[in-house]
């Protein structure tokens, strides 16, 4: 294949470096945001996506009024949870973007000197990670809290995929090659 980042024009290697750097910043802030809103443990992720166990709402025959005492503390904001509607919106917005990011990282993979099986594996990992992430969120919401582990696996897989691609690309693009002038 002609496309080989090890021997590519310096401008292309710089473009790939900037792209990976930008994704890296985005991932760091992504991790920060996950820490703020969902956490990194199965329990906290399950609590975020499963939500409180609510009985199915059945409207009464006639309007019913119930009054009870509350404290100001009870009026404070409840912990952040993602309801079904918000998850629909999140999925709609994020899946295309994750697809574009996975495609961009896969384009970098294609320019690396790797055995074919490793290339297939990395590209599969890059696309599988967001699928796992969102499949885990939906399964946690609809099936069982234990599927929070799938979301966590997806998130770590995203970081792993990015880390491998970045490390390989930086190594192959910028380390001096024997017999090649800088």
């Amino acid at each position: 294949m002609v496309y080989d980042l090890r021997h590519a024009d310096t401008r292309l290697r710089w473009l790939v470096t900037c792209l990976l750097g930008t994704f890296g910043v985005a991932y760091l802030f992504g991790a920060w945001m996950v820490g703020l809103y969902a956490g990194f443990t199965p329990r906290s992720v399950a609590a975020t996506y499963r939500g409180p166990k609510m009985p199915m709402h059945m409207p009464p025959e006639t309007t019913v009024v119930v009054e009870h005492a509350v404290t100001l503390g009870e009026l404070a904001e409840p912990a952040h949870t993602v309801d079904r509607d918000l998850l629909v919106q999140d999925t709609h917005v994020h899946i295309p973007m994750y697809g574009v990011i996975a495609a961009a990282l896969s384009a970098v993979v294609l320019g690396l000197a790797l055995p074919s099986w490793a290339g297939f594996g990395l590209i599969t990992l890059l696309f599988a990670a967001p699928w796992l992430d969102f499949a885990g969120m939906w399964l946690t919401k609809l099936v069982a809290p234990g599927f929070a582990l799938v979301t966590l696996a997806g998130g770590w897989a995203m970081g792993l995929g990015y880390g491998i691609v970045t490390a390989l690309a930086m190594w192959q693009m910028w380390t001096p090659k024997k017999g090649v002038a800088g």
Binding site: P59, P60, T62, V64, V65, E67, A69, V70, A76
Partner: peptide, 22 residues
Amino acid sequence: PDAVKALLPGAEAFFAREVHLS
């Protein structure tokens, strides 16, 4: 809670009245 304190000044006890609509 701050909005409640601002809109119900002087209130010492609070009650939630839940209207379950038909």
